[in-house]
Design a protein around this nucleic acid. Structure first.
Lengths: 231, 231
DNA sequence: CGTGAGCTTGACTAGGTTCAAACGGGGTGG
DNA sequence: CCACCCCGTTTGAACCTAGTCAAGCTCACG
């Protein structure tokens, strides 16, 4: 377990970075490793929230599905992110793997038990939850007030930010999600996503060597677009 | 202070309800009372988050303002609600009073200091934060996937729910916010809000004796509309 | 080399925005 | 006390963005 943690992609996550190697080993001695395949669900919104997960590898969507089929993706979950850190009876979102996923899982009770000996843990967990709330509010603003192209520009900068630490510091990255996922994240249709990509491409802001390989040619320009700065 | 707490409209809030009268008195011995007038800001998004507030009376908007004037209201804050329970350097939203507001204010440090002697406090605070996150995600779904009339139906049921405990159990309630506020909450324009109200009114789902006095004539119907159940 | 899933593009439609005007109710000043 | 005004709301008409439906394209895979 100790070795696995040293190599874990989540090694520098908000939680782990607060502890030294020995403490991490101790924390992870309570953890179970979980694997789920592409398209499978790590958890469902109606499940009782007894587990907390820390994503080690892969990418997930955090989503909610309406009875009529409409879907809203709340967030994309990357290695190092925590899932299920809520104190309520149920997760209120489902988590689906976009690519094969490995994660560490704790019993909520175990984790809460550790709070007494490691009070920093509880504080960190609260910090993580606060961060999630702030990001969700960013997203609220996007869905409430931005148009299609602004949303895509925002999305690309956001993904760039999130994946930079995995993909290295190049200007290109590979999108792990489909256009449908992007549409369901940004509250638009696939066609609108596609048209916005094409628009940004034809105007020279991005390059698409393949549909899912994006190169940001003009970050500053994208930022102006996403912030609605007419220039 | 003890007497004030007994009468406080927030007496049954998530936090207070976890403690007995004596504990509440102790908790509130650390609190300061704050008043702000209509239209004034209780706090700004860029302020450092050193205080936590508990609204005693009045109603606030929790909002974010873009440089180009676009505004998104994240939530309406009612008596008993907490504001600023985040562990990050800044509030990331501003809080504006729709009507004259009184609130109890704690120093975040003081509150955190109480965690040791009253561990239930920390747990409750986390529960409140979790609830806020879940509600914000409901809101995300609304902005991402619902049309104008569905949004208004959802909004009316939500306000009804929230205000029922203050306005009594009648079918009518008084909206404390303007149409513009509703528009900025639901991610549409004032005109669209107004048209949706008119539509629901002409179809018999609601009554408007004055613009801000709403009577729900058919809660079930409104629920079906807000859930997009075609009937 | 054929197939199919995912992506793009086009033409048309619809729902919401924009701009403009009228309405209504509460408050102020003559 | 009434006329006037102002602000928020409603309504109307034109416009436009994004949605819908349909066809064609690309590329990975069998």
């Amino acid at each position: 377990m100790g070795l696995a943690c040293q190599q874990c992609m989540a090694r520098n996550s908000a939680l782990c970075s607060a502890m030294d190697d020995k403490e991490i080993d101790y924390l992870f001695s309570f953890a179970h490793r979980v694997n789920v395949g592409e398209g499978a669900y790590l958890l469902h919104e109606e499940d009782s929230s007894q587990y907390v997960y820390n994503l080690s590898s892969g990418v997930c969507t955090l989503e909610r599905l309406a009875s009529d089929g409409r879907r809203q993706i709340m967030a994309f979950v990357y290695p190092g992110d925590f899932i299920g850190i809520i104190s309520g009876p149920f997760y209120s979102v489902s988590v689906q793997a976009l690519a094969p996923v490995t994660a560490c899982r704790w019993n909520m009770k175990d984790l809460q038990g550790l709070y007494q000996s490691h009070p920093i843990l509880e504080q960190k967990v609260h910090e993580i939850a606060s961060r999630v709330l702030a990001v969700t509010m960013d997203q609220l603003f996007v869905l409430g007030r931005k148009n299609a192209v602004e949303r895509i520009a925002y999305f690309l900068l956001y993904i760039d930010e999130r994946q930079r630490k995995f993909d290295g510091h190049s200007d290109s990255f590979i999108l792990p999600m489909t256009r449908i996922d992007i549409a369901d994240y940004l509250g638009v249709t696939v066609e609108t996503v596609s048209r916005a990509f094409s628009s940004l491409k034809s105007r020279g802001y991005i390059e698409l060597s393949q549909a899912w390989v994006v190169t940001l040619k003009d970050r500053k320009g994208l930022r102006e677009i996403s912030e609605h700065i007419s220039g």
